[in-house]
């Protein structure tokens, strides 16, 4: 089903992939004002990295180190839980299977009366462990799973770079995209009772930039 779906709707799928990928590739979203780091410092990082990029430096070791640093964020519960190896999202710090065993569905938005939006609103709800929310709340679609759970940094890195798996995006587009999607920022604004990723957003963005700027080599 997912194959024909992809053939029929490549553009839509790509957009969804993008939106979902964005959830774990934090960048500059305007509602991040709540974050500890000011957006101006993030702008500075972007500017600096763009300058470095122009120098077209390639340093595999530096790229791998940078990706490994970024990987700590990818592998954190806030990112991993919606990038499961199976078709049900995970929950909690321990990454248990979503208690209702909700399913991805072709578009990543759930199935039948168990769509993400059945419970998840456009924003987090007040109170510990209440359903978190975002207008784009979803999993990666069925034909673009972008799996984190159970992957190594290297495996995920290669998945991320593979145009066949990432929606045919260039590295620049990845960085650009993660810098502009509001679902991204949810990871750093996850609602009561959920831990934050180990790096703050600007640190994470900087690590991703450094990875790209140093030639985007993947860890083994």
């Amino acid at each position: 089903m997912s194959k024909s779906f992809a053939k029929k709707w490549p553009m839509q799928i790509a957009l969804v992939v993008w939106a979902v990928l964005a959830a774990c590739l934090p960048a500059l979203a305007q509602q991040q004002a709540a974050l500890a780091t000011s957006s101006s410092s993030v702008h500075a990082i972007v500017a600096a990295s763009t300058a470095t990029n122009n120098a077209a430096r390639s340093d595999a070791a530096a790229a791998q180190a940078a990706f490994n640093r970024a990987w700590t964020v990818f592998a954190s519960p806030r990112c991993r839980n919606c990038h499961p190896s199976g078709d049900a999202p995970l929950q909690g710090e321990d990454g248990h299977v979503h208690i209702q065993d909700v399913k991805r569905g072709p578009d990543g938005k759930g199935v039948y009366g168990m769509k993400c939006s059945t419970c998840h609103q456009v924003a987090n709800l007040p109170g510990a462990n209440m359903p978190p929310g975002n207008p784009k709340w979803s999993l990666p679609p069925a034909n673009m799973k972008m799996v984190i759970q159970g992957e190594t940094a290297g495996e995920f890195c290669r998945q991320l770079k593979d145009p066949a798996k990432n929606g045919h995006r260039s590295l620049a587009q990845i960085i650009e995209h993660v810098s502009s999607d509001d679902l991204v920022g949810w990871g750093w604004n996850p609602g009561e009772g959920r831990t934050l990723p180990p790096l703050d957003r600007p640190e994470f963005v900087a690590a991703m930039k450094a990875w790209v700027d140093n030639g985007a080599a993947c860890p083994q």
């Binding site: 209702q100 065993d101 909700v102 399913k103 199935v111 039948y112 009366g113 168990m114 059945t118 419970c119």
Partner: peptide, 25 residues
């Protein structure tokens, strides 16, 4: 019944697996 109604509206001949997926909430 409200959950089942959405299932049937989207899938007129649900399998047991479809029912698991639609009704486990």
């Amino acid at each position: 019944i409200m959950s089942a109604a959405v299932l049937l509206a989207e899938n007129s001949t649900p399998s047991d697996e479809d029912i698991d997926e639609a009704m486990s909430g």
